[in-house]
Nucleic acid binder design. Structure first.
Length: 430
RNA sequence: GGAGAGGUGGCAGAGUGGUCGAAUGUACCUGACUCGAAAUCAGGCGUAGCGUUAUACGCUACCGUGGGUUCGAAUCCCACCCUCUCCGCCA
């Protein structure tokens, strides 16, 4: 959520910056709502003030045993008007809130202006495209060839966009997750957390998935009390439960930065991506991810993002995978993000780079929605900056390992760093 | 699932219809005392919003959440959520 103070003082400026990401801010409507809000709020508070002082007088008069009928008749009129005007105010504020919650974040000044992913800015390539002296297979062929990847059984159990992993592949998947967790906790200073996979609507609102992107989520209806219904939502990323740990909290300054890492499954409806990436593990309704989350002092968020990006890159480097880092342009960054770097890993069978991590700084956008604050050096509560990034998506990393470490006979060489997690195994073969 | 207790400021904890935004303690800040510290004493110290651009002034809202009663609600009524204790069931 954007700061309403900034909208009031520099509406045209905000509109211009949002326009760079293709969002049209309805400035006329905002101004209109604000004008109404202001007059109604002032009037409401005036009336409330009148009522409060009259009630006080009634109390004092009654204490002395005086007649209060005159003043009570007067305050009754105030009450009448208040009743209607308070309703108006609540409605107006709700409208403003809806509008505010629908506004995406303002891009950081370093974000290149562009319309689509074609305008993203490549920052660097690390490693080099591997050479193969045979025709490479894709991960589906390799996985099925090893007897460890089974989409048909998954389709029977659940449907499209699910998978069953077996044997060595299932273990390799687990090894990757363990390796990533250990690296981030032992070498990068993150605290491992285990969190709920079902969260409430407030949490989804806090990180920005709600109210705008409900169709991307799996909703789990839940009967509460008498006829009351509340929903749980399956998390689309660990970002949601982990970031919301600080919702409605005031973190002591000396505890910053907070750095958490979580390994969770992620659930996405993929409502808007019918027909895309239908083959293989790339786009699934359920996948595992190691997520890095930081809550930092506002002065530190830029440096923290570079650092967090480096933590994710470390995993790829240790795994010996070729990748590139891309800075997303204004037209491609996510709703809540101020600045996002994607890490794209080389997939030989697709002869291209595919996203394997996305690292973002949200500045105060999420913190404002969550009221996640810290106590600054003046002792005053101030909004935190939040960041997160995948470190890494486990399923896609598995894909990258299969495709980049394949041999002509369809076996897979296990990267050095994973062998301790694989009982010393050096290759996966049929 | 059954029975009971409870949710109040950073923390602890009073407050059962009217000068209560809220006693008191503690933490914290400032000052006095001290070579310095501790102790003691004095004062200060919630969040958000609006007027209003303002760390100054005024007003409003906020005592788990949402409704209701009332001129007036932390306090009374209703519903819900959460926490704790005991019993039952359970990976």
């Amino acid at each position: 959520m954007l700061d309403i103070q900034v909208l009031r003082s520099d509406l045209q400026g905000v509109a211009a910056r949002l326009a760079t990401r293709g969002f049209v801010l309805d400035t006329a409507r905002f101004n209109d709502l604000e004008v109404q809000r202001k007059s109604i709020q002032v009037r409401t508070q005036e009336l409330q003030s009148k009522r409060n002082s009259a009630s006080k007088l009634i109390g004092q008069a009654k204490a002395k045993g005086e007649d209060t009928s005159a003043i009570m008749a007067e305050v009754a009129l105030v009450g009448e008007e208040l009743k209607t005007i308070e309703v108006q105010l609540v409605e107006l504020q709700a409208e403003l809130q809806v509008m505010l919650e629908g506004l995406p974040n303002v891009p950081h000044e370093s974000v290149p202006v562009g319309a689509s992913e074609a305008d993203n800015q490549e920052m660097r390539r690390i490693g080099s495209v591997p050479d193969f002296d045979f025709v490479v297979k894709d991960h589906v062929e390799l996985g099925e060839g090893l007897g460890g990847l089974d989409f048909e059984t998954a389709a029977k159990i659940s449907g499209a966009r699910f998978s069953v992993l077996k044997g060595g592949l299932a273990r390799l998947h687990r090894a990757l997750a363990q390796f990533m967790l250990d690296t981030h906790t032992d070498q990068h200073g993150y605290t491992e957390v285990y969190v709920p996979y079902l969260v409430n609507a407030d949490s989804m609102r806090g990180t920005g998935q709600l109210p705008k992107f409900e169709e991307d989520l799996f909703r789990v209806p839940r009967q509460m009390g008498e006829g009351g219904e509340q929903n749980f939502y399956l998390i689309p990323t660990a970002e949601v439960p982990v970031t919301n740990m600080v919702r409605d909290e005031i973190v002591p300054l000396e505890q910053l930065p907070l750095k958490f890492v979580a390994h969770t499954p992620c659930f996405r409806s993929e409502a808007g991506s019918a027909g895309r990436d239908t083959r293989g593990l790339i786009r699934q309704h359920q996948f595992d991810k190691i997520e890095l989350v930081q809550m930092v002092h506002p002065d530190e968020s830029c440096a923290a993002l570079e650092q967090l990006l480096g933590h994710a890159e470390t995993i790829l480097q240790k795994l010996g995978l070729h990748y590139r880092v891309v800075r997303l342009c204004t037209g491609d960054i996510g709703f809540s993000s101020a600045l996002t770097y994607d890490i794209e890993v080389w997939l030989p069978a697709q002869n291209t780079y595919r996203e394997i991590s996305s690292c973002s700084s949200f500045e105060a956008f999420q913190a404002r929605r969550m009221q996640a604050r810290f106590r600054n050096s003046a002792g005053k509560p101030e909004l935190l900056h939040t960041l997160n990034g995948s470190g890494l998506a486990v399923g896609r990393t598995l894909v990258a390992i299969l495709e980049n470490y394949q041999r002509e006979d369809g076996s897979i060489v296990i990267p050095e760093v994973l062998r301790p997690y694989m009982g010393g195994m050096e290759k996966l073969a049929r």
